[in-house]
Design a protein around this nucleic acid. Structure first.
Lengths: 222, 222, 222, 222
DNA sequence: GATGAATGAGCGTTCATTCAT
DNA sequence: AATGAATGAACGCTCATTCAT
């Protein structure tokens, strides 16, 4: 009607989603899901923090559950990548273990949200779903760790009374808790309480201690 | 109509909540929170399964969060009791460890909800709250375990290069994962994948393997 | 905190729904559905105009569809009542027809929403649903009208070449359009265009004309 | 790449909408509106089935309402055409009536969507709009029918006590219901209930019955 | 003091409308 | 000028919370 200032009505922008924005949807969704759980997460929060509209999420994902699925997949893929890389470094068991621990520390520090996500995933109470997820997530590392332990045992380097499956299980248990210690507030605080701030905040020292405990645990003989 | 209480109109029975009912509120709430998480849990479900009205919950708890707090406290108390009892059984380290593992298995099997609850608690994203909770929950066992390790170390029975705090941390990490393995669907499946069903379903064998791994880990010398 | 004026915070009222309010829900829903159709009707509009909250509707009806179902039922019940009453008045055919027309005019004027509702119901495109509804709504009057015509035919009072089913059909078609003419804006206007305002607005004259046309149509001989 | 149009980069074909496509928009929109009503119809469904983009619809129509308006107009035009043609066939009243009925049956069977559309139009609750539409749609046939009846009356061929407007009205009421019976699921089922499947499914028999009833109704004397 | 029906803010989801391409 | 992805208001529905009984 009247002579408005030029910038008066800038109401919509409507640009095609950049790849960054598309990636942001999942990334921010992971943050939201990781922080608040599936039920607690709000699609409008995700949209806002990803800088997109609510509606556009539904162009990429059928519903909240499918978005969650994509977040789970991305988190798993990241875990896999980290572990695969680390598992191939170092030719002997101590080197492999050290490498896995180091990578875990680095990855957890850099992308804590993926590991918090993992913590959320594992909270579900649907047994069938849990079995499916565990199969996808755990089977590969279980296989790799058990193979490494079997090889070491054949060479007479580890405790013969220790079942290789159990050994791999205990090792991975420690790894998982390490993930949590570096990504979830509670577990981080817990590490401080047990180890003291000085030790807990030195990645190198924790690494050394854990390598020692694990190799001891397996009865490893250089 | 019939020979009733003197006052004629008794249409609805408004008896004070029995102690059993009060306890039921928290117990059923723990089950609900453990199964569905904080957001997923429904107050009306809790009320129904506890056999009380929704309204009365608000007489005892300001809101959902306070009820959750009470559930957390009760879960912690249970954990404490289990661990304290177990920690005092057996005079030497191997006996203590074995006792703790055994108790963990028993308690997780009997009251999985408390441990699922623990998993839920540790998912929170409020750092201050996490610190407070960790202090309450973890400090006592941290103290006890470290004391036991320091004693053993003084007697020259465990690896001198291993920090007692770190040792206690790794041990408790394994304990925690054992809790989860016996109470959460995902972690249970995970144990199967790593250890095989045969081993995983034998409490005694798992106990033996874990005792072995832990004592090895600490470099324990009988 | 401070000494507020007594009426300062009157935010909620929370009184149990009176029967009037419960009835209002369906009545206002019928108005809304009749005016805007199933899809166009808004639950919050219904709640507001019925003077209740949105939530309470779901105490009485599972979802929008069930509320719609209740509205349909109420409308049908009203129709039935009107027709049953009217169908029993007058012992001979002319009297019955006249009574039905009169009742239709009265009912449509008093509760146009029920008949607009009928118009909405019949707009659906689901054949199975349509068949089910038609069976419920139409069968009773079809039966009654056909019986009346058969009786009249046996007495030699109506056109022998006219199928009694078809006769009943044409009569009811005229009745239905009369309903619409007295309850839907469009059909009302249409009546004005055809009959002129003077005739259209005289219930008595329309009644006479229609009785005449119908009896003629059936070939009725007094 | 190949011998194409001179300008190199032709990535998306942006041809002007063909007339066929333009017509398709309205035709498919009519189908959609007729089937699902105004609110229930989806612009993207219409666009898809018309083989055009959603955006282009807004080049031709300001908004959904205007598109609906265009559909209404087209439906009316079709109705007009059918009735005008039929109304001019046959020189005497019985022939005209028979022709109109026959055309109605044919047209309803061929293009049920136009008549379902009519049913939708007449469901609107805006009185002013209804008046406007009724004027456009009904006035012509009202005029034609009344003229035919007046002529017949002058010739002493129809009941003198029957108002010609009312007569035309009742006749058109029957016509309208016949339209519905041949195009809307509900009214089709209703015809079955009243007339029985055998009679209802014979166009010729229904035609005969209706001609008979109408001529009787008007008190027509050959 | 216990009850549970009523409340309404807030969620997940849809879809008419817009505009960068 | 046509496209269709992006927008965001608005819907149906849920559930933590309140209070008349």
């Amino acid at each position: 009607m009247s002579t408005n200032t030029p910038s008066a009505k800038v109401e919509t922008m409507l640009k095609k989603l950049t790849e960054t924005q598309q990636a942001q949807i999942v990334d921010k969704a992971i943050e939201e899901f990781a922080r608040k759980g599936y039920k607690g997460a709000g699609l409008s929060n995700i949209a806002r923090s990803a800088g997109v509209s609510v509606g556009v999420i539904y162009k990429y994902y059928k519903d909240k559950e499918e978005l969650f699925g994509a977040c789970v997949s991305k988190s798993i893929a990241y875990l896999d990548e980290v572990l695969t890389t680390a598992g191939q470094e170092g030719s002997d068991l101590p080197e492999m273990i050290r490498s896995l621990i180091r990578q875990t520390q680095a990855a957890s520090g850099e992308h804590p949200e993926y590991f918090r996500m993992y913590h959320q995933i594992t909270a579900g109470d649907d047994a069938a779903q849990a079995a499916k997820l565990a199969e996808i997530i755990e089977r590969p590392s279980a296989k790799a760790y058990k193979a490494a332990l079997r090889k070491a045992r054949k060479e007479g380097r580890i405790d013969e009374e220790l079942d290789t499956g159990a050994g791999a299980f205990f090792f991975d248990n420690l790894m998982m808790m390490l993930h949590y210690a570096y990504s979830c507030a509670y577990y981080s605080e817990r590490m401080n309480i047990y180890c003291g701030k000085k030790l807990a905040s030195s990645g190198k020292k924790m690494e050394d201690q854990m390598v020692r405990f694990v190799l001891n645990g397996l009865g490893y003989r250089g």
